[in-house]
Design a protein around this nucleic acid. Structure first.
Lengths: 152, 152
DNA sequence: AATGGACAGTTACATCTGCAACCACCTGAC
DNA sequence: GTCAGGTGGTTGCAGATGTAACTGTCCATT
């Protein structure tokens, strides 16, 4: 019985994710009073333009309730506006307002700065290895983006 | 502006951590009605024997309120017992009961099975790279286990 | 001995989260 | 046209979380 939590992959991954996310999250929390779901939705909309809530969820791996709440929060900040779909009235098209795009632009700068900082800390080797490992996980474990699965 | 969330390291790490943790967490949730903090505390106590709540927190990277609640939950399941320290009455020594050790033993088996499964999925290469990357993060970003820091 | 930190652990509160139920709407079979 | 089932999105609720404040205890200084 020499199991040790600190060598257990799920634990290490969670810890690493927390360590890496923490400082970046502190920035958008402090500067813009944004939560993580809001940042993800903003990032998705900022880089892909107009999307539906479901598409945001698929793109940023968020549960639809998280997306719903994040969208509402961004809307209340006047960074996002909804518009209806004339063919299918269940759908709402979402896109950033000019103010939202401005914030997005600022966040992208911060994100890039942080990526550079991480690259410096981890070294090119560490970073490359990490990315390769993450790619393996994404390839093998990610939900296969099912278009039509029986019921999972 | 070609920032993409799906290549952003903090996002990828969170996603990977979630993918990898999820299936394992489902096991202890379903089988033992355990939460993640409870599993971590159980694992810490199972592998190191008697510890204090603060030590559990340091070992498993949990906030002291999480530890407090996890300890209470494990105690209510009769998997853990507290005993007082005669020299310092602020401290409580925590250890698993026989029932707790049994559960721990079963969980270790599940954990090992899962590690093997992951190793198979990721391949030796992917796993080694991932571990190297995680080691880099832990080395560079982990809180330096400060014994006496000014105030952070 | 008294007093002012510092520390172990708990708890109140506000927030965040996921699940399940829900509403409105669409689509295909009849 | 109508009805059943599916889909986009929202919400009620119960559980989980972090922050800050709290209790009780220790210890160094006086």
């Amino acid at each position: 019985m020499d199991f040790k939590l600190e060598t257990f992959l799920p634990y290490r991954l969670n810890l690493a994710a927390e360590l890496v996310s923490q400082r970046f999250a502190a920035q958008y929390r402090a500067r813009y009073r944004m939560t993580r779901p809001e940042w993800r939705a903003l990032a998705a909309l900022g880089s892909y333009g107009r999307m539906t809530a479901t598409e945001i969820g698929a793109n940023s791996s968020m549960h639809k309730t998280k997306v719903s709440r994040a969208v509402r929060a961004l809307e209340e900040k006047r960074w996002l506006k909804r518009s209806e779909d004339l063919d299918d009235r269940r759908i709402e098209h979402l896109e950033l307002t000019p103010a939202g795009r401005r914030i997005y632009g600022e966040m992208v700068v911060l994100a890039r700065d942080y990526e550079r900082e991480l690259a410096g800390l981890l070294g090119t080797g560490g970073l490359k290895q990490l990315e390769a490992g993450l790619a393996a996980i994404e390839a093998k474990l990610a939900a296969p983006a099912r278009r039509r699965a029986p019921k999972d």
